[in-house]
């Protein structure tokens, strides 16, 4: 088992941690042998169990390493810009852990250049200065990395230019997944009651449901699995539909959204990612928030609180610290007092 896990994880740090596996848990009295016999899937599930808290530090670190998978978080520019706000919140709340990796090609996005964003009580933009002290500007698409949690986060500050979504996914997102050996891709999305395309894909009423966040998972597995799934799905004569996937994404029971439509951005993402040759990719997770357009900062806080449910290694963020740019999201200019100052706020 240990050998298998060693093979599965390339990081030298993880191998080093596995070497320390002879340390016993002080509370559960788990020995190395017992842990060996535990299936990895059980370990993955156990990450959310309370008894983990009672394990000794070494074991906790070890199990954390076991469940960690290189993850890429991608916000889709959508209703209320909630995914981008959520990513802002995630990056700046954990600015001591995340560091700037590089600016990513933004040819397919509306142009954007701005100053470095920061949290009000910080003397300098901590998020950028650790890894890029000479950096002065932010561009439309930037990649950040949290080494302790093995999470990459892409911040997209402007929408994709109309007609170039496919180019963006094929030329930017897929090479990114490939370059960083990503196992989990997390797509953050949001929709409102006016998004008719998404409303068609909802089964629960957004008025009666108390859960405003939908979670879907697309297990990529191997190409063989996908082909097998398609073969089973196309077997129309057999009455075994209950065990077959009825949607590309399998949504959790309480989700408002129970499938995706071909008109959503996420379909283009899923289509191109699944069609690309990405040997390390295991699953695509889709997390969509139902929002009302307006001041959506609270929605971003809720979605940020939900992130640990999707990314196991990401613990709960206790203090949410939005960046200073949020002050201008809903208008940064003073109201003009005369006509010559302009008529637009």
């Amino acid at each position: 088992m240990l050998e298998k896990m060693r093979e599965g994880y390339k990081s030298q740090r993880i191998v080093a941690a596995l070497d320390q596996a002879s340390v016993c848990c002080t509370v559960c009295k788990l020995t190395c042998a017992r842990i060996d016999s535990v299936d990895l899937k059980v370990l993955q599930k156990s990450s959310r169990l309370h008894h983990l808290l009672s394990l000794s530090l070494s074991w906790k670190r070890w199990i954390l390493f076991c469940i960690m998978a290189p993850t890429l978080v991608v916000p889709l520019v959508s209703t209320g810009n909630v995914p981008q706000l959520t990513v802002d919140l995630l990056l700046h709340s954990l600015s001591s852990e995340f560091s700037f990796v590089r600016s990513v090609d933004s040819t397919h996005l509306h142009p954007f250049v701005g100053p470095l964003d920061y949290v009000l009580d910080q003397p300098e933009p901590v998020l950028f200065k650790k890894s890029a002290p000479e950096k002065t500007y932010s561009t439309a698409l930037e990649l950040f990395y949290n080494q302790s949690k093995d999470v990459y986060v892409l911040q997209q500050r402007t929408p994709v230019i109309r007609g170039y979504l496919n180019n963006y996914v094929k030329d930017v997102i897929i090479p990114l997944i490939e370059a960083h050996d990503i196992e989990d891709v997390v797509l953050l999305d949001s929709f409102g009651s006016l998004d008719q395309d998404v409303a068609e894909a909802t089964t629960l009423s957004s008025r009666t449901s108390s859960n405003f966040i939908s979670d879907g998972t697309c297990e990529v597995g191997s190409v063989t699995d996908i082909i097998r799934n398609f073969q089973q799905s196309l077997n129309l004569n057999e009455r075994s539909a209950s065990s077959l996937p009825c949607s590309l994404f399998t949504f959790s029971a309480g989700s408002i959204q129970q499938e995706i439509t071909t008109k959503q951005q996420v379909f283009n993402f899923a289509y191109h990612i699944l069609n690309a040759s990405l040997p390390t990719l295991k699953r695509i997770r889709y997390c969509s928030a139902y929002v009302h357009e307006g001041d959506n900062s609270e929605d971003a806080h809720l979605l940020c609180d939900h992130l640990p449910h999707i990314i196991a290694s990401l613990g709960k963020i206790v203090n949410h610290t939005p960046p200073v740019s949020w002050k201008g999201v809903y208008g940064s200019r003073p109201i003009p007092s005369s006509y010559d100052e302009g008529v637009f706020v």
Binding site: H110, P111, F112, V113, G114, P115, L116, D117, Y118, R157, T158, P323, V324, S325, W326, K327, G328, V329, S332
Partner: peptide
Amino acid sequence: NPPEFVTGFAG
């Protein structure tokens, strides 16, 4: 200063 930014050709 944030949230100021530049778009268009200059951006």
